[in-house]
Amino acid sequence: MSVLEIRSLNKVYVDDYTGEEVPAIGDVSFSVEQGEFVSILGPSGCGKTTVLNIIAGFIDPTGGEVLLNGEAISGPGPDRGVVFQSFALFPWKTVLGNLTFGLKMRRIPRREREEIAAEYLELVGLSGFERRYPHELSGGMQQRLGVARVLAIEPSVMLMDEPFASVDAQTRMKLQEDLTRIWQDRRPTIFFVTHDVDEAVFLSDRVIVLSQGPSRVREIVEVDIPRPRRWDELIEDPVFRRTSHRIIELLSAPADVEDRSDAATP
């Protein structure tokens, strides 16, 4: 059984004020397996964030269903941890306070919380910063805290919406390498939204490519690149290049491209 299963998802926004209808998602189906890293990619405004928000339970779909471990979801919950583009750290809590927030909600005793926290701080390289407040960290460190905060509650699936979009290019590459390392180490199930083709290929096992909104799944591209992955090695890698190229083609060409059968999988 898949951890996450999306069936014929459909979303039409209704503008509260004008009553206007905005179709965002046409018909989207896919599934994510245990321990898999899946990215979703598509043109701007095609509904990627909408898909993630529906899975997270922040908004309701107009049609279709979301099954988590075979059961329909209702509202947000700790079984689906979210890493936000805006970090969404609590400024009034220290690094430790932010990291242990989810554990505290689960009524885990303080001592145990701090033991778990130490482990995850180590994992994301934030040991020694426990007492700092978020604004005293760099952007990259803040997002590492955002990732650790979710990892610590061990959700069934981790949802990430363009988590590295607001840090500088070099920090982003570092964060991407850190994320693959952590993923290999812990094997969380990750659903990752991005608009960056290289990022999607670098990180994922599979990349879901959406069409222009109201979106459908245009193709699901398998990324057959061995791990551990590092940028200095991959940048020249022919499989990496071919896969990226294939996705760029899918994104830029008119709808008939999806009928071509020479997929990137070699």
């Binding site: 919950g77 941890g81 979210v82 936000f84 969404a88 909600m105 509650i153």
Partner: peptide
Amino acid sequence: RAARTLGAG
């Protein structure tokens, strides 16, 4: 939203 996904009631 972050608080809710981290399990806060």
